[in-house]
Design a protein around this nucleic acid. Sequence first.
DNA 1: GGGTTAGTGTGGTCGGACCACACGCCGACC
DNA 2: GGTCGGCGTGTGGTCCGACCACACTAACCC
Lengths: 229, 229
Amino acid sequence: MRTHQLVQSWLEEQLAAGHLAVGDRLPGERMVAEQLGISRASAREGIRVLEAMGIVRAGVGSGPGAGTVITANPGAALGAALRLHMATSHLPIEDIVQTRLLLETWAAAHARPAAPAMENAAALLEAMESSAPDEKEFLRLDALFHVALADAAGNVLIGAMMSSLRESIEGYTLRLTRTLPDWAATSARLRAEHRDIHNAIRNDDGALAAKMVANHIEGFYKEAGFSGA
Amino acid sequence: MRTHQLVQSWLEEQLAAGHLAVGDRLPGERMVAEQLGISRASAREGIRVLEAMGIVRAGVGSGPGAGTVITANPGAALGAALRLHMATSHLPIEDIVQTRLLLETWAAAHARPAAPAMENAAALLEAMESSAPDEKEFLRLDALFHVALADAAGNVLIGAMMSSLRESIEGYTLRLTRTLPDWAATSARLRAEHRDIHNAIRNDDGALAAKMVANHIEGFYKEAGFSGA
DNA sequence: GGGTTAGTGTGGTCGGACCACACGCCGACC
DNA sequence: GGTCGGCGTGTGGTCCGACCACACTAACCC
């Protein structure tokens, strides 16, 4: 086992033993290195990996927000990894879209009407309809709306995956959007569909919501000329 | 942007531009550092993150297998991250099992009878039946069998996710298995179900295969006394 | 009392050094 | 001529010590 991996196994132990929990601060890098009997450089490598995994967050200075603090952010971390893997051409965008479809229809079917995330979703609907956002802003809100729906199903892992998937295909979706003939009409339709989906979940009609989500996503990609889904 | 992240964006550019591809070797750490105008320590931190993401693989010495070579291993990388997140108690095991169920039923429904992975699956069935593996070995083969089925659906991302999920809950499953009253009977049943699933896919009956996979997984956890699924 | 300044601890970066490893070359030996 | 051994070389792996920017704290001066 390589030296920097000691940090990971050490943190895993500390977490399992209850000595550390989300929100706690790690000892300083110099301290970690000393406790594990390794150099600060190796300790840093280990911490850097933890950061890439979304387990910790590092901040300079002092006071709250400084130091290396344990977070729990499975989503943001995955996004970067997926982007890289897409760049290797060993992860077709079709597969990502397909997976997104699977996760979202499941989430729609299992979303709980009373979930806190549904409030966010409603607020996002308002934002998309009241203001007149440009394509990029609309897409940002749209992404947040879909992630909120995924969160409403109450499965942390699926919520995180949805978040990463959206992030990794964000650039691609934006390019796709710009090829649309009539953005105003399309966005109006998307907004209406969002409303319908939202209402279906509110009415606890998961089956209907799932069906509409599938149509919503497939319809968009179909209109934009994407054949993968 | 922090220095070590330059390595990631640099590699992403190189991949996008086609200057590097899977299988190629990166310039040496010292060379990368020099080209990006950063120190070797920072370059190493960046490379370490790439390694954790499953983008590259590092090997010492010389000749083939040495140096930092670009791979494409989305699966193995995710497993460690999921384990850590489980340790933070912010990723319930129920969510993982639930996600596994979702992915596997989908994969069974979409598995292609002629996929190369089906050959592996068949070989794994043989191994599970001919020899008399102990629980740990049986579980290992079982995991590989399920991953093979996921691969047979042809979706790289879902295959990778399945692989990571199985890895992250491996320890948990093993503990669960040891509480079973009659392992011989259970394993015999599991083997028979594997056969049925395999045959259903061979006969291109995705719907049946999906149903059987769901029963297979739910049945196991139910028998082992796990209420989350 | 209020504004300023020195102190302290954090992560961020750097340069250089040495190690273990694995290959390929090349000379010595049979 | 063929084979075996050892050395050179380049790789990642690890370590050390230093300095920096930052943000907060506390002491200080006016």
